[in-house]
């Protein structure tokens, strides 16, 4: 590698992973709750979904807030039908603004993942006082184990600062289909494979593919990963959603179709990010012990 962050490792040459109950595929549904402020500055760049027009851009502000108010409840219903619990990358601003939504998530036993302060506080090289921003973000959230940086943007110090703040896993790096270990200033952080390439916002907003296309791509993703488990051990699939995208009335049916397709298969284990990571780590410890 050209850096010391993690070790080089070839996906198909690793020891097969076994999931609890002999499951073939761990399904990790992630539902990001985001708030885009009206006075967005877009430093050092505007994330996907950012406000666009001259101030005040009521149009995009409210289109994004739709997810927190309406869309999330359609997603909840779709997941509840299959008994799926999600991980929820949450902007601290959402937790402060909509405490009843956080209570609802707690009552469902969903996992909260930190997702930065809001969608106009990206982490980037040269930013002012990143440690304070991380502390402030975490101070407004329940205790979390995972972190997803807004727009998956990091500075060269983000991982050290997150590890120092007690974060166990990050969802920013998209270079693997399975968890792996990262070095963060003498501590270990786990990289969790949180999809960016085929999340609903990237496909339907970024690429302008329609909701049927998104459904087909998710199903193709699932089919290939599921087939790989026949020869390569347990796999995981991340299904990354934004209620301001998938939560619209005309789109939510596509999520229902994706979930119905996946959950029809035997050996699918729907779990939160932390649960999947725990199962992965426990097994690595066991393997390490048996080798010794």
């Amino acid at each position: 590698m050209d850096h010391e962050r993690y070790d080089w490792s070839i996906l198909p040459r690793r020891a097969p992973v076994k999931w609890p109950g002999g499951a073939r595929l761990a399904l990790w549904v992630s539902v990001s709750l985001q708030w885009f402020p009206l006075d967005m500055k877009g430093q050092p760049f505007k994330p996907l979904g950012a406000l666009q027009t001259a101030y005040p851009d009521l149009r995009h502000y409210t289109l994004r807030d739709y997810g927190n108010r309406v869309g999330i409840f359609r997603v909840m219903k779709a997941l509840a039908r299959h008994g799926i619990r999600a991980s929820v990358p949450t902007n601290a601003a959402v937790a402060v603004r909509y405490p009843s939504l956080l209570q609802k998530l707690a009552s469902l036993d969903w996992e909260i993942v930190a997702h930065g302060l809001d969608m106009d506080h990206l982490h980037y090289e040269g930013m002012a006082d990143e440690r304070a921003l991380i502390q402030k973000t975490l101070s407004h959230l329940p205790r979390v184990r995972g972190w997803l940086s807004p727009a998956k943007s990091e500075s060269s110090q983000t991982l050290e600062l997150l590890a120092e703040a007690g974060i166990e896993y990050v969802c920013d790096w998209v270079n693997d289909d399975m968890p792996y270990e990262m070095r963060a200033g003498g501590r270990t952080l786990w990289a969790m494979p949180h999809s960016g390439d085929i999340d609903d916002a990237q496909i339907m907003i970024g690429n302008r593919h329609d909701e049927d296309e998104w459904r087909d791509q998710m199903i193709d993703q699932f089919e290939l990963l599921y087939d790989e488990t026949a020869t390569q051990g347990g796999r995981m699939m991340s299904l990354s959603l934004h209620p301001w995208v998938i939560g619209h009335p005309y789109r939510i049916g596509s999520l229902e179709e994706v979930l119905a397709h996946i959950m029809r298969h035997s050996g699918v284990w729907p779990a939160t990010g932390a649960e999947i990571l725990d199962a992965f780590k426990a097994q690595r410890t066991a393997q390490g012990a048996s080798r010794a």
């Binding site: 009206l38 006075d39 101030y55 502000y61 108010r69 409840f73 603004r97 009843s100 939504l101 609802k104």
Partner: peptide
């Protein structure tokens, strides 16, 4: 400039 238009409260 305002961060929040302040035009509506939260109603899930």
């Amino acid at each position: 400039m305002k961060r929040d238009p302040g035009l509506y409260d939260y109603l899930p």
